[in-house]
């Protein structure tokens, strides 16, 4: 069996499992849309300006996919490691990479589903606008920009117990969201914070998606940052995945 076909097999059954618990689905699908309704729509200075509104919708879409990735990867993996089904999966003839990719695919699918209501609400209740090709391009950029978050989630999941993972995911998520300009636009940042921000995957994902949706120039630090974060976190995830076997005893 090829790694690719096994990846899809694992991803498919991950999704079936999640879909059988509707509460989990509703939580990850509805939360980002509510954030947009409560935090952006009432602020008419932002909501009525096409540029600002579009950037706000993009920022919240990035936040949606980031929190989705961090939570579902970090918590699912940490919980699964404590359940005895996971060790059984590791005895099957499937490479570790197939299981990592499968988790990327299944959560990515859910993440994309979560931002659709964000786009719809943004289009209906704010001045945000973009053509369909730009929206599609934005989705592609979003899924590329999401890779580092998924991999960070994987690393947290493999490094920590479920209880510790919840706390760490929350800290990481809010730190990345604020410092990455997902809640407050970077134009309001002090210079030092703006510089720091450019090293964070959340800021890089935001700029990547804004570039895809609104056009303009893509600064090299954006795509270099995404590539470097992805490569680093993929390496770390694989290392933690392999090291993990030594921790499961008693």
């Amino acid at each position: 069996m090829s790694t690719l076909s096994l990846t899809f097999v694992h991803a498919r059954y991950n999704l079936i499992e999640t879909a059988r618990i509707p509460v989990a689905l509703i939580g990850s699908l509805v939360f980002p849309a509510l954030a947009l309704l409560f935090f952006v729509v009432p602020q008419r200075t932002v909501a009525d300006n096409p540029d600002f509104a579009t950037q706000a919708v993009v920022s919240l879409a990035v936040f949606a996919i980031m929190s989705n990735s961090l939570f579902s990867f970090g918590l699912n993996i940490a919980e699964n490691r404590e359940k005895p089904w996971d060790p059984y999966l590791r005895t099957l003839p499937a490479p570790g990479l197939a299981r990592v990719f499968a988790q990327v695919f299944s959560t990515g699918t859910l993440g994309v589903a979560a931002i659709i209501p964000v786009i719809v609400i943004g289009g209906l209740f704010t001045a945000a606008s973009a053509s369909l090709p730009h929206i599609l391009l934005g989705l592609v950029a979003l899924s590329v920009g999401a890779l580092p978050f998924m991999l960070i989630g994987i690393c947290i999941g493999y490094a920590l117990s479920a209880k510790a993972a919840i706390a760490v995911v929350q800290v990481v998520m809010f730190a990345l969201a604020f410092a990455g300009g997902l809640f407050l636009p970077p134009v309001l940042f002090a210079d030092w914070l703006n510089t720091l921000s450019k090293f964070l995957p959340s800021r890089q994902a935001r700029e990547l998606v804004i570039w895809a949706v609104q056009g303009g120039t893509l600064e090299p630090w954006v795509w270099i940052g995404v590539v470097v974060w992805t490569a680093l976190m993929l390496g770390l995830a694989l290392f933690l995945f392999r090291r993990d076997e030594g921790h499961r005893f008693r």
């Binding site: 618990i21 089904w85 059984y88």
Partner: peptide
């Protein structure tokens, strides 16, 4: 090398929604 190996999960481990 595990292609010709068969093993069992603990019965408490089966994914309950599948």
């Amino acid at each position: 090398n595990r292609q010709r190996l068969g093993s069992t999960p603990q019965e408490t481990a089966l994914p309950s929604t599948l």
